[in-house]
Nucleic acid binder design. Structure first.
Length: 431
RNA sequence: GGAGAGGUCGCAUAGUUGGUCUAGUGCGCUCGCCUGGAAAGCGGGUAGGGUGUAACAGCCCUCGAGGGUUCGAAUCCCUCCCUCUCCGCCA
């Protein structure tokens, strides 16, 4: 959420940001917001004046009653009218505030100066070219679905039977490999990158979704448990960032770095027919997520560190990837700057998004009211929040299986995972 | 699921027949005095948000959250959330 004071003082900058994000259609909303804001301040002043009068006269009434100088009937009658007016005004005020909040919650974040201008995904900038750890695949290669099936480690059909399409089942060494990846990533980030591990709830309330910005914008993409009014998390970002909602963080603890594994649930409504095969788009997947809370002046430096932490996993696994710097037209509404990490799929012959590393500056912190005091005497300021996947296993699994397949259809387990899998290869089922 | 108790300004507490509560006190923190230095003692300051101002000041709101009654609510009523105790059920 943007600071209304900032919007009021810099309307042109916000308007140009909307155009850069290809959201010029939102400009009338911005004008509406400014008008509501003007009206609200006018009304607040009048309402506060009347409240001041009521407070003052109520004390006079109390004095009169206490000293027994009369009944104060006339004053009470007058204040009854004043109170009625206040009630009317406050109702109008509440309406205005609701409207303002609604617009403010839907306006996207500002953009960092380093974000390239662009209209769509094609305009994203390749920030780091693929580093080549390519294994020699000089034989007809199988895609991850064929490998999963022939090795008996992935079962999409049974997943569809017991739940529905897009809920894969991992079996045998496949399940163990998935768990190994998760454990490896958690250990790596806690041991080498200074993150504190968190195991969060997989369901959150609506306030939490609102805090990180999934609500109201992505309301239709989140699974809802109506009975208890809870939502299945689309990413661990939601519970972990909300850990400090409505808190004043002790300044000396900043920056705070958390890493969390969670299953992630996404309805993916409206995206059927596009990249839906196998793991490319699923309703439930596993992800290790990094979340940071920082002082404003260090957030961009921390963004680079998150990116490097995510890259370190791929380097250790020796999986080829590239890093994109998202352009103004493709970056998510919450972020001021975002890097995507994409892993190469030799079978699909394209890059697959495996991580997204973003700085939200104070956009989420303002929604969640997470602050710190730069020093003991100063006013509280909002922290900056950041996050990055480190990483999502589904696309990673695609790339890993495909890269590490052998001519005979078996899979060699990457060195760094062997302590976690307890085996060095996954071989063809011999029946 | 049932019954009961409770949520107050960092922490602990006072406040329940509505009006001297613009929330008292203790601890903690902090500034100053005192001291060779420290402790003790003494004195002061110790929330957030809104509005407003050049900046102050001033004013408004917040006693778990949200409504209501009233001229006036920490105090009365309603709904919800959370914590604790007991009972029941149960991975």
């Amino acid at each position: 959420m943007l600071d209304i004071t900032y919007v009021r003082q810099n309307p042109d900058e916000i308007a140009s940001m909307l155009r850069n994000r290809q959201l010029a259609s939102e400009e009338p909303r911005l004008q509406e917001l400014l008008e509501y804001d003007r009206k609200r301040r006018e009304l607040v002043q009048r309402s506060d004046e009347m409240k001041a009068q009521r407070n003052k006269v109520s004390k006079e009434i109390a004095d009169i009653k206490r000293t027994g100088q009369g009944s104060g009937e006339e004053l009470i009658r007058q204040m009854k009218e004043v109170s009625d007016e206040i009630t009317t005004m406050d109702a109008a005020l509440t309406k205005l505030e609701t409207d303002i909040e609604e617009i403010l919650l839907s306006l996207p974040n500002r953009l960092h100066e380093s974000v390239p201008a662009g209209k769509c995904a094609e305009d994203n900038v390749v920030f780091k070219a693929p580093v080549s750890y390519l294994h020699l695949l000089d034989f007809p290669i199988k895609n991850h679905l064929e490998l999963g099936k022939s090795l008996g480690i992935l079962d999409f059909e049974r997943g569809a039977k017991i739940t529905g399409a897009g809920f894969p089942v991992y079996i045998g060494k496949g399940a163990r490999l998935e768990r190994a990846l998760i454990n490896f990533m958690l250990d790596y980030h806690t041991e080498h990158h200074g993150f504190t591990e968190v195991f969060p709830p997989f369901f959150v309330n609506q306030d939490s979704l609102r805090g990180t910005g999934q609500w109201p914008k992505f309301a239709d993409q989140v699974y809802h448990i109506g009975e208890d009014n809870l939502y299945a998390i689309p990413t661990a970002e939601v519970p972990v960032t909300n850990l400090h909602r409505n808190e004043m963080i002790e300044t000396e603890r900043l920056p705070l770095s958390y890493v969390a594994y969670s299953a992630c649930f996404r309805r993916e409504a409206g995206s059927y027919g596009k990249d839906t095969r196998g793991f490319l788009r699923v309703h439930q997947f596993n992800k290790v997520e990094m979340v940071k809370f920082t002082r404003p002046e260090e957030s961009y430096q921390e963004l680079e560190k998150i990116l490097m932490s995510a890259e370190a996993i791929l380097q250790a696994l020796m999986i080829p990837y590239r890093v994109l710097l998202l352009c103004s037209g493709d970056i998510s509404a919450n972020a001021t700057k975002c890097y995507d990490i994409e892993v190469w799929s030799p079978a699909e012959e394209k890059y697959l998004e495996a991580s997204s590393c973003s700085n939200f500056e104070d956009y989420q912190a303002r929604r969640m009211n997470i602050r710190f005091k730069p020093d003991s005497r100063s006013k509280p300021e909002f922290v900056h929040t950041l996050n990055g996947s480190g990483l999502a296993t589904s696309r990673l699994m695609v790339s890993l299986l495909e890269h590490y397949q052998n001519r005979d259809g078996s899979i060699t387990i990457p060195e760094v995972l062997r302590p976690y899998t307890g085996f060095t290869s996954i071989d063809q089922i011999t029946s």
